[in-house]
Design a protein around this nucleic acid. Sequence first.
DNA 1: GTCTTATTGCGATCCATTCGCAACAAGACT
DNA 2: AGTCTTGTTGCGAATGGATCGCAATAAGAC
Lengths: 152, 152
Amino acid sequence: MALGDMATKQQRTERFEQALRESGVRITRQRAAMLRVLAEADDHPDAVELHRRSEVEVPGISLSTVYRTLSALEEKGVIQRHQFDGASARFEHAETDHHDHMIDVETGDVIEFCSDRIEKLQAEIAAEMGYDIVHHRLELYVRKKPASRKSN
Amino acid sequence: MALGDMATKQQRTERFEQALRESGVRITRQRAAMLRVLAEADDHPDAVELHRRSEVEVPGISLSTVYRTLSALEEKGVIQRHQFDGASARFEHAETDHHDHMIDVETGDVIEFCSDRIEKLQAEIAAEMGYDIVHHRLELYVRKKPASRKSN
DNA sequence: GTCTTATTGCGATCCATTCGCAACAAGACT
DNA sequence: AGTCTTGTTGCGAATGGATCGCAATAAGAC
C-alpha cells in the first residue's frame, strides 16, 4: 500500500477519534489501537484476530475490551459486523462503499462485490409487499470454477 | 389447510422415511415425530420450538436428540437451516421451491420470496469472477411501510 | 492537579450447540 | 417371535462465542 494511503487512513482515523470523543466516547489506548488495526486491515478479521493484532500495540488488552469496543464502534457506525455461515463474527471498517460478499467455501477468502441492479430489485420486491428495507445481507458461497479447457 | 394437503404431506413424509431408511438412517419414534412436526410447520421454528412440538408426540424426547436429528436431516437434504441475524438457527423442510427470506425486524416474522432476476444476476457476477455458486443467502431485514396518506 | 465518570481486566456467566458414554431399540436375518 | 448388530437415545458435561458484574483505573473537562 502506498504512502498516500497511509496518510489518508491516519487522517480518517483521527477524524473518527474526534467524532467519537464528541459523542462522549473516550479514546483510550486500547481503542486507539483498535481503530488503527481496523483501518489497516484489508481483510475481514474476527474478534480473536483483532485481539491478536491489537496486543502488538497494547500488550495485555483483554478480549472483553475488544468485544466491547467492537460493539461500541458498530453502534457508532464506524465498523460493520458480518456473520458468515457458522463462523464467528468478522468485522470491517464502514467507511467504504456498500458492498456484498462472496465467500470461497474452500479457502474462506472473502471477496467484495456490488450490484446496483440487485439492490434495485431488492427494493422493488420489498416495496411491492409493503416494506422498507432496513438492511440486507447477500452472501454468495462460491467455489473456483474448474479451469475450463477452451477459454469458456 | 385442506385434507388433500394432509394426505400429500403424509405421503411425502413416508417417502422421506423410506429414503432415509435406505440410506442407513433408522426411523425412530423421535425421528418420525420430528419429520411429522417439520412437515406440518408452515413457519420457521428453531430447535427449542421443534423440541416443544415434538414432545407432544414423544414426551421425554431430549433436546440433544432434536439437535442431532436436525443435523442429520439437514445433511440428507430433508430440511434447511437458516441463521438469521443473531438469533438461534431456524429450520424448514426443503421440499419447497428455492426462495429467499424477508425478516420483519419489528415482529420477527419471516416472509418468503423469490426473484429469478436476482438469481440470474448473482450467477453472472460469480461467473464473471471465475466462481460457481455453491449456495447463497439473501435476507432482507425490513419494516412495514408507514401507512401512506394518499395511496402511494 | 483534581474530580467525575467512562472504561478496563478479570473471572464468572450466558446461551446455543455439541459430545461422551452406557443403556436402548431399529431393523435385518433366522 | 428370538437374537444380533449397530445406529440412536437421554443424560449430563463440555464447548465456544459473546456478554456481564465489579473493583480498580485512567480519559478528559474544569
